[in-house]
Design a protein around this nucleic acid. Structure first.
Length: 403
DNA sequence: GCAACATTTCCTGTTT
DNA sequence: GAAACAGGAAATGTTG
């Protein structure tokens, strides 16, 4: 093993940083170190400078140690299950990464287990650890809670939704949780955990400034109507105004603007608007399709995707990822609201490989859920829905993690 | 091939 | 007047 294992170095730095004025905390950290890296050589003195070689000579066959060294145990163990030692190491790692002055750290708050830690809200964290470290710890904890939750809940479908969210938001240049730099090790874990592009091909979805139609003419794969030509021109896919009108009135960031998504728009002038027959128009043959969304590797029988209500639910239960797309109105009652209704519809469309999805269509599908009691009506409130008794997976009790 | 299911698409009318 | 809501009708794609 190399003599510069980051976990050990960080711990040593922390111990050294607090040893002058906080001997107790120092010994706690050192004891935690020894406890965690249970050694068969009790003669190793905690404070001695040869700690590192001593550790490196230990039997390090257990994966916990190996994981700790690389910081990966964070992503493998639910924060709720962290031991006091785990919490201590996590704090020490964050102390190091924030260059926090450990002298100001209170020992009393460094001896708690994960369950206790998880009960602290952001304000309490800041109150205990100070603004800088407290905020940092809170963010870090939320990240590991999310990862843990993903591992618990997810099946590939939830991952897919999260991945879709990540990819979608990534394309919009949002600062994604998974990209927040806490430390190299965590970053590596994040990249591993959220590297989804291999199994959900969204790479074909490019978000870029919309090219003026006069410069580049796109061809539609299945929308041959003049109706869509006109609606598209008005920004239907331009993402210039994907938020709902209400969302623009203060609940969402008014400064927020989506990059534009390029679309295939068939420029076909028709003199008068012809009345369409009812029902969904037949799709053109794939052979004649020139759709950028078509994936040549796509299976003939696509795997069963999540249902719309599950897609919505998955956005809602990952508030750190939904970036103002939706919000809970009443978390306990399952009442939620669309903030960026068109953006959510676009995401749903991406998931279903349907570039022409709109909130109007999505909401029609949502209304069908009323009969099946998957959703309940919320009268008088626009863009507000409520999960019904036949929905699942959104309740705090079910998830086990308060959000 | 067929039926069931879950949307998707379009429409008209109503409400906010 | 525009956006959202409501729900009918007919269509599609997937699955069993």
């Amino acid at each position: 093993m190399e003599c510069c294992e980051p976990g050990v170095l960080i711990l040593l730095c922390v111990v050294r940083g607090i040893s002058m004025s906080s001997p107790c905390l120092s010994s706690v950290l050192t004891n935690a170190n020894l406890t965690m890296y249970q050694t068969s050589a009790p003669e190793v003195m905690p404070q001695q400078s040869s700690l590192l070689p001593s550790i490196s000579s230990q039997q390090i066959s257990n994966s916990a140690y190996t994981s700790s060294i690389s910081g990966q145990w964070y992503g493998q163990i639910s924060p709720h299950c962290w031991t006091e030692d785990n919490v201590l190491e996590w704090i020490s790692d964050n102390v190091e990464s924030t260059k926090f002055d450990a002298n100001t750290l209170s020992l009393a708050y460094c001896t708690m287990n994960g369950a206790t830690l998880c009960q602290m809200n952001q304000d309490q964290m800041i109150g205990v650890f100070g603004l800088q470290l407290g905020q940092h710890l809170h963010n870090s904890l939320q990240e590991y809670k999310t990862k843990s939750e993903l591992q618990i809940m997810s099946g590939p479908e939830l991952n897919e939704t999260c991945q879709l969210l990540d990819n979608f938001l990534d394309n919009l240049n949002f600062p994604l949780l998974s990209t927040i730099r806490i430390g190299q090790a965590e970053e590596a874990v994040c990249q591993r955990d959220f590297d989804y592009r291999n199994d959900y091909d969204l790479t074909s979805l490019t978000m870029e400034p919309m090219t003026p139609l006069g410069d580049t003419e796109y061809l539609s794969d299945n929308q041959s109507d003049s109706e869509y030509s006109s609606s598209s021109n008005s920004g239907m896919f331009g993402f210039s105004n994907l938020g709902s009108p209400e969302s623009g009135s203060g609940e969402s960031d008014p400064e927020f603007s989506y990059p534009l998504i390029s679309t295939h728009i068939k420029m076909e002038k028709v003199e008068s608007r012809l009345k369409r027959p009812r029902g969904r128009p037949p799709k053109l043959s794939r052979e004649h399709s020139n759709n950028m969304y078509d994936n040549p590797k796509k299976n003939k029988h696509a795997p069963r995707g999540t249902h719309l209500w599950e897609f919505i639910r998955d956005i809602l239960i990952h508030p750190e990822r939904n970036q103002g797309l939706m919000k809970w109105e009443d978390r306990r009652e399952g009442v939620f609201k669309f903030l960026k209704s068109e953006a959510v519809a676009q995401m749903w469309g991406q998931k279903k490989k349907n570039s022409s999805m709109t909130y109007e269509k999505l909401s029609r599908a949502m209304r069908y859920y009323y009969k099946r009691e998957i959703l309940e009506r919320v009268d008088g409130r626009r863009l507000v829905y409520k999960f019904g008794k036949n929905s699942s997976g959104w309740k705090i009790e079910e998830i086990g993690i308060g959000m």
